[in-house]
Write a protein that binds this DNA or RNA. Structure first.
Lengths: 339, 339
DNA sequence: ACCATATATGGAAGCGTTTCCAGATGCCAA
DNA sequence: TTGGCATCTGGAAACGCTTCCATATATGGT
């Protein structure tokens, strides 16, 4: 492996100047810079990250902590982050949090503190107090995506807004008997994504004079099988003549559509379904959804952390989302019940 | 951030001894080791990866190059790798190759050569000659998962074997009119996954006296929508009375099942479908598949690269796979055509 | 009792950069 | 011409570890 010294020698300058020439920091004449660049190119020189980090205190790497990579939302965000970091010349150090609590603890206790990264992006994790504390103790920029933790800068969509928008869409189409599939609020340590989304749904219904407490609803794990199981129950419940269904994730919505199909219920003729996310499979299923552009979120989060690492601080950010209407929703048929 | 020197001072030893005590390399008495460990614990000391790498030449980090994180197979493998590396105390540096050829090139030209990683796992990438060369030039262990590149140690399932097994399953059930959905063999630079899988299918059919050339087949991109589109054509083709279908990935198989449902074709009563992968959604759809345990593959690849990094070399490895029979396949009904 | 060997420890030399500091050079204004 | 300032460059000191080497002490065989 060629070292900076060899490049400097080849270019006839000191290693100090070579370093300045290649990093762009400090004054170097144009001629010198060119000679050094050419020498570096010719020798195939690449800076040693270890030496560079040690000397400069910056590693040009960002840590990303994510849960379950199988879930489309998370791997989409990760894709966006990765793309932006690569373009900026940064490495991405991935910490995939699994269900093993000991490993999870170790990530916060040791891995993050090795100074291998200049900043951390936390993707949609429910952080407990100790973890938040550890993150603070790192003394480096941290951005939390998909949550509004107490004391860390974060970026999130308006989690009430998305489900409110979804429900309003159905209400506007004339639906009154609307069901809901959400997440388990018991695990809501801090950010309350499941709680917020339910709230948004409730508000929308209440605003139109429907009692949200009466809405048939169920709890699932945001996955297709989860949504499928709950939807089978909801659709099968006698007396609950749902004409509309809001799911807190597209995967659950897709599960619900599959359940409807298996039960011989037609979408959207008999029941309209709306999801939240903007899942890539939404198109295939014709799913109407509130798209929250997860890849874009990853990009924004990455840009944000890079800015923070480079000194330009800023705080909370709201992320955009939009309703994408496809064929899983339609105007409600007039029935006896509807006013 | 507390340094090793402070720990050493607190424990009343030299930094050399402290280093040995914490790393476990070299001779340290039990008492000393304990005192140092306690001091480190008390001070919350964590080694600086940069300093450690620079001094030792090892970074305790493994690079992973993967394509499209949206595809279940890849994020499953990544999950397995991540889990194993974390348990071993290694970091994972993720290089997600996108469709941008310039970024891809940059990963091989610069990113990997910063000596940030001790070894590289390449997941199912078609490497061109230059890329292979770069990988060699790294002078560090490389493992290629899901492919048998010319000159790099790799691990792969028997790609002919999986589709042969899938096809044999259908043949054994009495099917004779079997279709196939595979990948585009034009992109087959090196590893020939699409080609190998097609070969396996062909061999199985030929062995039972069916002409594989006659088998109705189509090409897709291994995704659900891709499989859906091709299957719609295959099922809709007049004259081709398929009773069985082999797909080279579970996602395409699931797409095919959805297409069948939309066309009013019953699975498995009218057509049996087999996939390859072991996709988590297989259970929901009752998909019969050849499970290749992707998470396990990730684990094996990670263990392999760790062994190599630590010096214990070894070569190619075959990976296990197995037929998982669910409800998407059934005995073929006797028809006029069947012998 | 003594030498050979194994075990423990500290001093100090790196590892390959970055960056501070000081000196050199060039240019412009007075 | 000369002082003053900005620009350029090199020497050398970090950065925080690991590890070689030398020294010191314990262990065991004869």
């Amino acid at each position: 492996m060629v070292s900076l010294d060899e490049v400097a020698r080849a270019a006839g300058v000191s290693s100090a100047t070579a370093s300045r020439a290649l990093s762009g920091r400090g004054h170097v004449s144009a001629v010198t810079r060119n000679r050094v660049s050419e020498a570096a190119e010719a020798l195939g020189y690449v800076v040693s990250s270890a030496a560079s980090s040690l000397a400069s205190g910056r590693s040009r790497s960002i840590g990303v902590i994510t849960p379950d990579l199988h879930r489309w939302f998370f791997n989409s965000v990760l894709t966006g982050i990765s793309d932006t970091l690569t373009r900026a010349g940064y490495d991405l150090t991935l910490y995939n949090v699994t269900s093993d609590p000991q490993l999870r603890r170790e990530i916060f206790r040791a891995f993050l503190r090795r100074r291998r990264v200049d900043g951390v992006v936390v993707v949609a994790l429910e952080l407990d107090e100790w973890e938040t504390e550890q993150l603070h103790g790192l003394g480096m920029p941290v951005v939390v995506l998909g949550g509004r933790p107490r004391e860390l800068p974060g970026m999130a969509i308006d989690d009430q807004g998305v489900t409110r928008l979804a429900a309003e869409h159905l209400l506007t189409l004339g639906h009154r008997e609307i069901g809901y599939i959400g997440g388990d609020q018991a695990f809501d340590v801090d950010y309350h994504v499941p709680t917020q989304r339910r709230e948004g749904f409730n508000h929308a219904l209440a605003a139109r004079g429907c009692d949200p407490q009466q809405a048939p609803s169920g709890v699932a794990d945001f996955t297709i099988p989860g949504g499928y199981a709950v939807a089978k129950k909801l659709f099968g419940t006698p007396g609950a003549d749902l004409t509309g269904l809001v799911a807190a994730s597209d995967e659950m919505a897709i599960g619900a559509m599959l359940a409807a199909k298996d039960l011989g219920i037609q979408v959207p003729q008999q029941v309209s379904v709306v999801g939240v996310d903007g899942h890539e499979l939404g198109e295939l299923f014709g799913l109407t959804t509130v798209d929250q552009h997860p890849v874009g979120q990853g990009r924004i989060a990455a840009e944000h952390i890079l800015a923070r690492v480079e000194g330009e601080g800023n705080g909370h950010t709201d992320l955009p989302f939009e309703l994408v209407v496809r064929s899983s929703t339609a105007v409600a048929k007039k029935t006896a019940q509807s006013e």
